[in-house]
């Protein structure tokens, strides 16, 4: 078995210490690990399974069930763009196509420079101001290709 890297061990131990005793602790633990590391590494699974008295298969099953949990480290900035009906009704597909073309990636991929990861999302609850997307931790409404270009420029320069 590969030796776990220190950050993974730290992230898992911190998450376990915080949540282990709570009923139904697995989701809070996985959220914590992903919050710290950006994803849930494979080698985080055995110690979580051991601590919660679950099989590794059970923990893996939960990680793989939920769209939120990533299996690989994302880019510096994660972009989540809405694919749902309300956004489709006002040009969401155009925004998505523009993002894919500009970044040169498909959903679930990260740009070669490690800057952006593009993910689909099914509703951000901003449907009166569709199309909507999230860049990093900021939500944006009434998105257009031009507006997306501005936002990408700002995100690149770290603004």
């Amino acid at each position: 078995m590969p030796v776990r890297s220190e950050p993974v061990t730290d992230a898992v131990e911190t998450a376990l210490a915080r949540h282990k005793e709570r009923p139904g602790a697995l989701l809070p633990i996985l959220h914590d690990v992903q919050h710290t590391l950006g994803y849930v590494p494979d080698d985080a699974i055995p110690p979580i399974a051991l601590a919660l008295n679950l099989s590794r298969a059970e923990v893996h099953g939960v990680v793989s069930f939920y769209h939120d949990f990533r299996h690989a480290a994302p880019g510096k900035v994660v972009i989540k763009v809405c694919r749902a009906e309300s956004c489709q009704a006002v040009g969401g597909d155009t925004v998505i196509a523009h993002l894919k073309r500009t970044l040169g990636i498909e959903f679930g991929q990260t740009t070669a420079d490690g800057q952006f990861t593009l993910e689909p999302v099914y509703c951000l609850g901003n449907c009166a101001l569709s199309p909507a997307l999230v860049i990093g931790s900021e939500i944006h409404g009434r998105a257009t290709p031009d507006r997306v270009d501005e936002l990408l420029r700002a995100a690149r320069s770290g603004a």
Partner: peptide, 9 residues
């Protein structure tokens, strides 16, 4: 609240 078009919750 996962339905597209809803945000009352």
């Amino acid at each position: 609240e996962g339905d597209s078009g809803t945000f009352s919750d």
